[in-house]
C-alpha cells in the first residue's frame, strides 16, 4: 500500500519574526448532529475524553481535541492512525441517533505558524481581530484566509494551527509565506 503523505510534504519557511510549516498528518473527524443531544455528548466524551465545546470553543484532552465548528458540527482531532476507528466507533455508538461522521483527515491540510509574529502573519490575511484580548487559547475561529476558507486556533505558547482544504494547501502556504516574509508592524 502507498504511504500517506501530507499535501505539501512538510513544506516550511522561516520569516524574520514567524515561521510557517506544514504539520505532520493529523486525524480529523467531522461529526454533524444535534449538539444538544445527551447521547451524542456522552459518546464524544467517552471517545475523546472531551466535554462538548460551547460556541466557538475548543476542548483539549491529551492528544485529542474537539472543536465547535457550527451549531450542528464538531471537528474531532485524533491521532492520524485512529481516525478510521473513531468514525467506526462513532457510527456504532450513535446508531439510531441522527448524526453524520466522516474521516476528513486526507481532505484537509494543517499548518503551524510559530514565532512572536504569528498573530501578525494571520492578521494580514484574515478579517479577524487577532489581538490577545480578542482571540486566545481555547477558541476555534473559522474565517477567510486571503481567498479561501480556513479554521485556526492558538495554543498557550502562541503557536497558531490552521486547517484548510487540501486542494488549496499550495495557495494557503504561499499566502502565509508571503505574509511571513516581512518584519513586524506591531499593531496587535
Amino acid at each position: 500500500m502507498s504511504d500517506a503523505m501530507t499535501a505539501l510534504n512538510g513544506a516550511s519557511m522561516q520569516g524574520p519574526v514567524a515561521a510557517v510549516r506544514e504539520a505532520a498528518l493529523q486525524g480529523m473527524v467531522l461529526l454533524r448532529g444535534d449538539l444538544a443531544d445527551e447521547t451524542l455528548a456522552a459518546v464524544v466524551k467517552d471517545l475523546t475524553g472531551c466535554d462538548l465545546p460551547g460556541q466557538r470553543e475548543m476542548v483539549q484532552a491529551g492528544n485529542t481535541a474537539v472543536a465547535w465548528m457550527s451549531p450542528d458540527e464538531l471537528l474531532l482531532l485524533v491521532p492520524y492512525e485512529e481516525a478510521g476507528t473513531t468514525v467506526a466507533s462513532l457510527s456504532q455508538a450513535l446508531e439510531g441517533v441522527y448524526h453524520l461522521a466522516v474521516d476528513v483527515s486526507d481532505a484537509r491540510a494543517l499548518f503551524r505558524i510559530s514565532g512572536e509574529g504569528a498573530r501578525e502573519v494571520l492578521a494580514r490575511l484574515c478579517p479577524v481581530d487577532l489581538s490577545p484580548a480578542a482571540f486566545g487559547p481555547g477558541e476555534m475561529r473559522r474565517s477567510r484566509l486571503a481567498q479561501v476558507p480556513a479554521a485556526f486556533w492558538i495554543d498557550e505558547t502562541g503557536t497558531i494551527s490552521l486547517v484548510c482544504f487540501r486542494s488549496v494547501a499550495g495557495y494557503a502556504f504561499g499566502a502565509l509565506s508571503a505574509a511571513a516574509e516581512s518584519g513586524p508592524v506591531n499593531f496587535l
Binding site: Q55, R56, S70, P71, P127, R141, R142, S143, R144
Partner: peptide
C-alpha cells in the same frame, strides 16, 4: 446569530 462573530462583509 449562530456563532456570535462580528463578520466582516468579505466573510459572508
Amino acid at each position: 446569530p449562530y456563532c456570535g462573530i462580528q463578520c466582516d462583509e468579505t466573510e459572508l
